[in-house]
């Protein structure tokens, strides 16, 4: 395999930070996630793509402990964490955002991020961490607002800020850039790249292909609950199976 864009070796030398094996989730007759296996290496940015209903969000919920797996296993930092409670996953260093933005309606933006920062800090340090994190995502001016006063874009940034404030090793971001303008998305991407260069690992669900192509080291493609492809952006573009199942014809639009 070739080195990734940061010059890190992307071969099998490094122990994966996340390993999902045969993950399966059924809702009645529907298999939302069907024997999905994949690995994520430290400081990697993996994009998880697939059409609506492919099972991406459900897969995130299985990994982060919000829904129990029917079959399969998840290991995080070489430790079996299958069906661990969500709060415990957070403490281990896994953060997730919610596609349907989840707000603390009665907390100010600053308080919400402080609550997240309290996971690793005392009150004084958490308050400072919240300042820093809000500055990082560009929400400093909105600190005193309560979440219902925020625009959808700002709520998404708040989701990211809450994740970051827990100082995770791995972040699962579920469509945080959907609905952002290109320049807003670019700002988020900048933060992602910077944090990755500091060693943070990302799995992103995004529908906007230019974003995916520009940021991902590797792309995992799902369709009807199954993983149908896994490779570098270049490999994924060339993958006939992916083209047929997912992109249709118009990939470069």
């Amino acid at each position: 395999m070739s080195p990734d864009i940061n010059g890190r070796p992307s071969g099998g030398l490094i122990e994966p930070i996340l390993r999902v094996h045969g993950a399966t989730k059924r809702f009645g007759g529907l298999t939302a996630v069907d024997r999905v296996s994949f690995e994520v290496r430290p400081a990697e940015i993996v994009a998880l793509i697939g059409p609506n209903g492919a099972g991406k969000t459900t897969l995130f919920s299985l990994i982060s402990g919000f829904q129990p797996l029917d079959e399969g296993s998840v290991s995080f930092q070489a430790k079996d964490v299958t069906n661990f409670a969500p709060a415990r996953m957070a403490h281990l260093g896994l953060a997730r955002s919610f596609q349907i933005v989840q707000v603390f309606a009665d907390l100010t933006v600053h308080e919400a991020v402080t609550a997240a920062a309290l996971m690793r800090h005392s009150m004084g340090a958490a308050l400072r961490k919240a300042d820093e994190t809000l500055a990082l995502v560009g929400l400093s001016e909105k600190g005193a607002n309560v979440t219902p006063e925020l625009s959808l874009q700002d709520r998404k940034l708040l989701e990211v800020a809450k994740c970051l404030a827990t100082e995770p090793k791995l972040i699962l971001l579920d469509e945080v850039m959907a609905g952002l303008t290109m320049s807003e998305a670019e700002a988020v991407l900048k933060v992602v790249r910077r944090l990755r260069s500091e060693g943070m690992t990302f799995v992103l669900v995004e529908h906007v292909m230019p974003i995916v192509m520009s940021i991902a080291d590797r792309i995992v493609v799902m369709n009807f609950g199954q993983k149908i492809a896994d490779g570098s952006p270049a490999e994924i573009i060339e993958d006939r199976f992916v083209r047929d199942a997912y992109f249709g014809e118009d990939l470069h639009a």
Binding site: A87, H91, R96, K162
Partner: peptide, 11 residues
């Protein structure tokens, strides 16, 4: 306010 979001930040 939101039990799921609270758990996600380690509560």
């Amino acid at each position: 306010d939101n039990e799921a979001a609270a758990q996600a930040v380690g509560v």
